[in-house]
Design a protein around this nucleic acid. Structure first.
Lengths: 196, 196
DNA sequence: CAAAACATACACCGATCGGTTTCTTCGATC
DNA sequence: GATCGAAGAAACCGATCGGTGTATGTTTTG
């Protein structure tokens, strides 16, 4: 027993890290070596490298959501719950190992929007938008759809800043999101589930 | 004479297009074939493929700026000049051949922030921020530095939306930028060079 | 203990990678 | 018309690409 995780789990975990850190162009040999799994085994667990890309990205979803999103029993106001996402992202970006949202990065590298990995990325981004939308609805905001998209754009814009390694100014994303919520009349005092 | 452009020009132009459309992983052979230049010639015009990447990106800068930024003798208000950038981006994104900002895309693929191409990308983003900042100063906005960064983030967030091919909702970036300018008190009536 | 199932290491496949070299062809100069 | 340099086509280099086949264990199962 070299580890209690299955070959599949080790493979997906190594893939998540390597594809994010070094790009999806990293070779299958290097990936298998890092995972401690033979190529043969990999190819009978997955049909192709592309499938590994897509599945490792999909597996990253819940983990990444847990990092970013407030827990469901976090009873702060919708506004605070939304802003906490940008605070989390800001913390991540400060850690020097953050090169932007992994889903956007991978989609950027894959180019082809039909690639299974791109589909996963699109779904994840929609899930983030859905989270924002649900909170905005709870807060009673008008035009929650557009606002949710705008918040997602701010999130990815902050990610792009990390990608190009612009000078790290803290909390710019949080401030920007605050401005948008202010303009939309989403305030702290609004109680959850008390949407007018 | 196969074309009036020099080998160098043809190479950089083909590189700009192929690296953007297919990614920087595209091979040197394919690049040279597309440019109608022999590998031999390429390697005596440039030291390495990495140098071609950086120079083709740098060459794209002025062209891309001309596409996005209003001309200096465009006499609209700073606010309108700023918003026009997001309108331009929105038009680009609608064209189905736009996969996000080329500079952010390339930096994402390169991973290494020390790569000459990443340096060029960082400079370009700073130039865009500088444009926003100059307009904001002209409009008399407070905290022009932070606002300029926020506008750049919105720009790149809209680019990320194009990358993941989210459902194309028009003018979301423009609206978002408007909201931010409204909140900052940057209005149309403010005349250029009449900063308070 | 034997048999079957599995996972390993590793050679191998054709293709392509970034980069170099050789040879040829062409056009300008004297 | 002879000479020279620039540029093109293409072979070549070792390395690596995604993917497959084989042969040797190592477990699990009966």
């Amino acid at each position: 027993m070299k580890s209690q995780a299955t070959s599949r789990e080790r493979l997906l975990e190594a893939a998540s890290e390597l594809f994010y850190r070094d790009g999806v162009s990293i070779g299958v040999d290097a990936l298998c070596k890092a995972a401690g799994v033979s190529k043969k085994s990999m190819y009978q667990l997955f049909r192709s490298k592309d499938e590994v890309i897509a599945e490792s990205l999909a597996a990253r979803g819940p983990y990444y959501n847990a990092l970013l999103l407030p827990s469901p029993d976090d009873e702060r106001s919708p506004r605070e719950r939304i802003l906490s996402v940008f605070e989390r992202e800001d913390e991540l970006a400060a850690s020097n190992e953050y090169f932007g949202c992994p889903f956007v990065s991978t989609a950027t590298e894959l180019k082809n929007p039909e690639h299974p990995g791109s589909v996963v990325a699109r779904h994840f981004k929609q899930a983030l938008t859905d989270f924002f939308r649900a909170e905005l609805v709870r807060a009673g905001a008008e035009d929650a759809d557009t606002l949710a998209i705008q918040l997602t754009m701010i999130f990815d814009g902050a990610g792009a800043r990390a990608v190009v390694r612009a000078q790290p100014l803290r909390n710019v994303g949080v401030q920007l999101a605050s401005t948008v919520l202010d303009a939309a009349g989403v305030r702290d005092e609004q109680l959850a589930a008390h949407a007018r």
